[in-house]
Design a protein around this nucleic acid. Structure first.
Length: 266
RNA sequence: GACUCAAAUCUUACCAG
């Protein structure tokens, strides 16, 4: 009963709720899925109402329900309210977990409150929050977004010093950061580091680097990377094609761009 | 008994701001 398909039809979920009145009772999981669906569509107010509904039905929101709703507020950049909910859940005796903390961390980063995010993170480290790579990734992404590559790099060093293992997302995030500030050589050497660590660059890694290369006018290298992808596990995807097409247009090679589009259509 | 199963982090464009 609780396994609704998400991602597909957020509005149809409302219908599902009504249908479940015909004999099938929604449970906490059902509501959590729906709330998450509404939140990711920016329907935060509806999500709030839905949480009230479930309470009225005698269903108690759990950590997943709260985290989903907290994430919704973060998407809307309403971080204050997100923390308000966080306080509320703690008062209800519900223990936040790493998902909850990471959601809040990301919320702080996305509104540019990086120092607060770091403070929050450090405070959590002192408590029951095991070091986890996702939290580091969130902070790294935050610093990369504003071009503070020195701070971002320092966090990567810290991950390694703690004996944790950076993952593909860690590297992808840093590569994007270096590309965005035009430090393409640093980005390239991170790709090498990544492979040296035994990590497989994925489609996002390549796409990210290609954007950087095109930005500094090195379309040729970007095209080579696309060739390289084919030889590996990862395949160029729709985003790859969009990047390359736009790169060709920027280089004035409209005919090549058109050919690429046509070949993609086959 | 184990596994994926409701919530967190990375790339282009679009949308929103």
């Amino acid at each position: 009963t609780g396994l609704c398909r998400k991602k597909q039809l957020a509005e149809a979920k409302l219908v599902l709720v009504e249908m479940s009145e015909m004999g099938i009772n929604p449970n906490v999981m059902t509501y959590s899925v729906l709330i998450h669906g509404l939140c990711s569509q920016g329907q935060i107010e509806d999500a709030k109402l839905m949480m009230q509904d479930m309470v009225h039905l005698g269903l108690a929101p759990n950590v997943v329900t709260y985290t989903a709703l907290i994430g919704g507020f973060c998407i809307e950049r309403r971080v204050e309210e997100a923390f308000g909910l966080f306080d509320e859940m703690v008062q209800q005796g519900i223990d936040p977990n790493k998902y909850t903390y990471c959601t809040l961390l990301d919320g702080l980063c996305k509104v540019g409150k990086l120092e607060e995010a770091v403070q929050f993170f450090r405070r959590l480290q002192g408590q029951a929050f095991d070091d986890n790579v996702v939290a580091y990734n969130i902070l790294i992404s935050g610093f990369c977004k504003v071009g503070f590559m020195n701070k971002a790099t320092r966090l990567l060093v810290e991950i390694i010093q703690k004996g944790l293992e950076p993952d593909e997302i860690t590297y992808n995030t840093l590569i994007d950061g270096f590309c965005k500030v035009g430090r393409i050589e640093d980005a390239k050497s991170l790709l090498i580091d990544m492979e040296r660590q035994g990590l497989r660059p994925n489609d996002i890694t390549y796409n990210t680097l290609m954007v950087g290369l095109i930005k500094v006018g090195d379309l040729e290298h970007a095209l080579h990377l696309a060739q390289e992808m084919v030889g590996k596990q990862t395949q160029p995807d729709a985003i790859t094609h969009s990047i390359l097409t736009s790169g060709m247009c920027q280089a004035g090679r409209f005919q090549d761009a058109e050919n690429l589009l046509l070949s993609y259509g086959r």
